[in-house]
Amino acid sequence: MQISMMPLRTTKVSVGGHDVVADVGGDGPPVLLLHGFPQTRLTWRSVVPLLADRFQLVCPDLPGYGDSARLGDAPQSFDEALLGRHMVKLMHQLGYERFAVVGHDRGGLVAFRAALDDPDSVTHLGVLDILPTVDNWAALQGPGGVFAFHLYLLAQPTDLPERLIGADPDVFFGHFLDTWTEVPGAIPPDVRAHYLSAAGRPEAIHAICDDYRASAFIDGVQDERDQAEGRRLTMPVLAAWQDPGEARLPFDPVRIWESWAADVHTVALRCGHFLPEELPKQVADAVTQLIAS
């Protein structure tokens, strides 16, 4: 399904022998925008028109998602550090030596790792509705874990999740698209159908499961080591998340992100999980303010 990301153009770039498909365009300082689960680069379709006259935008499908090739056959190919380096190489090949990166959900984890590991390339970091992997796992306690059941299911080291999801991928992935959204119409039927089609392919299901296996058995260990060594983000950071309203989060996102960065601006938005699609103007404004800092 072809859904326009005007005014961007679609391009395919070979990065280390692996094809990355991205929408690129705009005018101004470069910004890399990374999507999350269970989506593709279309996550940014409503944000792009609000930023393209101020920034040069690059919106790729993450490896293994959408139209971009995965980097290997094992869960290790979804190591956040590896994916972060891959995205940095993509930007360098496109001619951007220094750039801002903003990521939502899984893309936020890749953005976080790229910024932590390569501060010479990343000038600003934006993370939307995500915590670093080690903090995310630590926050899952008691009944709150019910709503994050997919983290445990997808990370199973056998092919159990692939077999279960493959029985009805539309029901599985549609569950998240429907229940994690609070703004009516944020994900219209044609975009929803695109997400389900992209995620429901057997190779995509396997890639997504391997991504979560890496999160459980690789990425958290890396984060723990970085914490022990006192590594911190050195660039301005925007951390945004959904405002839970009267409900209470089982963690303090402000404290967590301030433990990783000295220069951090935090904002809570009244919407569901899919911030770029539910409140694109607020997200665009926050990104603009971040890069102006």
Rank of each mutant, 00 (worst) to 15 (best):
D178M: 11
S46W: 13
Q141W: 03
I291H: 01
Q242H: 10
A228H: 14
A167T: 15
F274N: 08
I3D: 00
A239R: 04
A186V: 13
V287D: 03
V264K: 06
D67R: 14
L32Q: 00
R232W: 01
S197M: 08
I291E: 03
Q156G: 03
R9H: 11
T288W: 03
F55R: 15
D226H: 14
A115N: 01
G230C: 08
I208R: 01
H175Y: 15
V264Y: 01
I218M: 03
A268M: 04
D263M: 02
R9E: 07
A284T: 06
E162I: 07
A114M: 04
G145S: 09
S14E: 14
P132L: 04
L33H: 01
Q242D: 11
S293A: 11
W257R: 05
L269V: 14
Q222F: 09
T11C: 11
R225P: 06
T133D: 00
H18T: 05
H194Q: 11
E278F: 01
D159N: 13
V134H: 09
G26V: 12
L154N: 12
F99H: 01
D243S: 12
P143S: 09
A114Y: 00
R54Y: 12
H175R: 13
A284N: 03
R113W: 05
D105T: 05
G108S: 06
W260T: 13
R248Y: 10
R45S: 10
L71N: 02
R85P: 00
V237T: 12
P280E: 06
S197P: 01
D210S: 05
F173M: 06
I208W: 02
I256T: 15
L233P: 10
V101G: 00
P143L: 06
G245T: 12
H124V: 07
G25D: 01
V191L: 15
L151G: 04
A100E: 07
P132Y: 02
L128P: 10
E182G: 05
P30I: 00
C59T: 15
M91E: 01
H18N: 11
R70V: 09
F251G: 07
P280K: 00
R70D: 11
T288N: 13
K12Y: 00
F274T: 05
P63Y: 00
W257Y: 09
V237R: 03
D211W: 01
V146L: 13
W137F: 15
L42F: 13
H104T: 08
Q39W: 03
L164E: 09
